[in-house]
Design a binder for these strands. Structure first.
Lengths: 204, 204
DNA sequence: GTCTATACAGCGATAGAC
DNA sequence: GTCTATCGCTGTATAGAC
């Protein structure tokens, strides 16, 4: 909390975050323990408690770091993508990267376990999705304006559909580690939003 | 396993299943314990072990019952819905019912925790989604034939998109218990599949 | 700043009385 | 069929040595 976003791998704190993050994304918050993390790092559970007083604080640090990285990636897309459709493709790419590492979206995982989380974590997860939704709505509005996207329903519903489709797609594709299935599903989702003249993804 | 699908509330076994099912859907497999179930039922953990030798067996029984109920509902839709579009609306209704009870889809929850589950449960979850996907593909093909649905991409990709969209939509809507958000998102998803002349859901 | 040692609650599970 | 009693293990967490 009082610490700047730790760079990967530097220092014990950073290594703890890296290991715990992977465990959280693969096994869920209730599916890993201080013991698991400590064993993999070759340190003691007590040492972990030095860096993070409790599992809740560790969880908070993980969400903060993840959300920060995600937010930075969105800012990067805003800066580099030529149009709204490209931003959206980049957004899908963020999800594909996570799934390719055989992980679930950290906040998607926590969303499933939401009812079992300490209050601050519940809030942080909700905030993550709220800011994602806000960004998506902005991009969709942009796409309607620059003509790179087709807007069938409301921007609100479409943003929810995209977000839900990607999270749910990951959830299911991860069952048999089929990244290809996720990719084609996501492409289908994007095709729905493509303007009429570019509708068929094969025509790309 | 050796028992027919228990009717809700009859006998201790049925009451155990009802309570455990709710806990599994709300808190996840790693988020509830034998102790939680026993306490709520006013029995001891040991009594639970009589009915289900271990948590894995309880989990298997829960999936079997849930999948059986779901499968029966799909058969019911096949028998009563006038066309493919109506079947699809009925399918969405199944999800809405679950979310209205403030629960996550049982198998969607288990999908998140997949890597931590005993092997038989992993298999059962995969089977659930495989049979759902098969049913959805069949309905989509029907819809293309009877003209009640529009088929933009492949049937495979569209089925995955619908399944993922609904599971992911539940996951996120449950964060703030906003059933309305799920409903409109799902309607948007269905609107994408509606034929051109009936595209706008407001025209209904 | 990291470890040893320890506490204590909870877990899933079993044996055997009733 | 349900209980008491108990097991061995793991969970998070703390106090204090180094």
């Amino acid at each position: 909390m009082s610490e700047e976003v730790a760079a990967n791998g530097t220092g014990t704190t950073g290594r703890i975050l890296d290991v715990a993050e992977r465990m959280l994304q693969v096994r869920g918050y209730n599916g890993f323990s201080y013991g698991d993390v400590a064993t993999e790092l070759g340190i003691t559970r007590a040492a972990l408690h030095y860096h993070f007083p409790g599992k809740g604080e560790l969880g908070q640090a993980l969400i903060e770091r993840y959300a920060g990285r995600f937010s930075a990636a969105l800012t990067g897309l805003d800066a580099t993508a030529p149009d709204a459709a490209a931003k959206l493709r980049g957004y899908v790419g963020l999800y594909t990267d996570v799934l390719s590492a055989d992980r679930m979206c950290l906040c998607g995982m926590l969303a499933a376990e939401h009812r079992t989380l300490p209050d601050p974590l519940q809030q942080a997860v909700a905030d993550f999705f709220a800011s994602n939704t806000t960004w998506l709505r902005k991009v969709l509005r942009e796409g309607c304006a620059d003509g790179s996207l087709r807007c069938a329903g409301t921007v609100e519903d479409t943003a929810s559909m995209v977000l839900g489709g990607l999270e749910g797609g990951m959830l299911i594709a991860r069952l048999d580690g089929d990244v290809g299935r996720f990719t084609t599903t996501a492409r289908q989702l994007l095709a729905v939003l493509a303007p009429a003249e570019t509708k068929t993804p094969a025509a790309r």
